[in-house]
Amino acid sequence: MIILENVCLNYPISNKNLSIRKNIVSGIFGSNVKNDYIEALKEINLKFENGVYGLSGSNGSGKTSLLKLVAGIYPPSSGKIEVSGSISSMIDINFGFNPELTGVENIEFRLIVEGIKKHQRESMIEKIKHETELGEYLYLPIKTYSTGMRFRLAFFTSLYIESDILLLDEWIGVADQKLRDKVDKLIFERIAKSKVTLIASHNLERMQKICNKIVFFEKGEILKIT
């Protein structure tokens, strides 16, 4: 279960040349901008119980910030967040990979970060290697990968990390049609294993198919919940 009570998130802006920055940033973000920070989320009150939830909204509306708050990556500027259960996520566009390391090394590191013990890691790496279908590419630095290949690596690594809460951001956009079909099937199986799933996406039609509820965001505020 995830509970957010009066949660606000402010991004600090550099104090240097504040007056110039203020003008530029306020031109882009409109009323979100205060003197030295941007209000990314304002007074958010939400409760996510078992189920699949969609987060919808335009760019900069606060979807990813909410996922990062739930994941514990960002601290709330004010308010309270309660998260019960383990978390697995696919949030950042770079998936936290080190571009200099090979695919296999990145899988291993991701499993280490998740706290998986060495004896379990070896068998998991073998399974993930097989599922990604990346073949010899797995032994090349991932800076040589296309975005789709990185997605494969990230997706199948996250898939094998069991957790109570699954956080996905724009999770399907970079996959090709063949991979989308495979991912669709697997994601439903994975969602079934997780107690709470939060998906942030622009694809409303897709979310309506799989989500129990969709939260709509605009300029860091909740617009409506359907």
Partner: peptide, 9 residues
């Protein structure tokens, strides 16, 4: 930065 934006470490 990339790792910290993906996972709480």
């Amino acid at each position: 930065k990339d790792l910290l934006n993906e996972k709480k470490v």
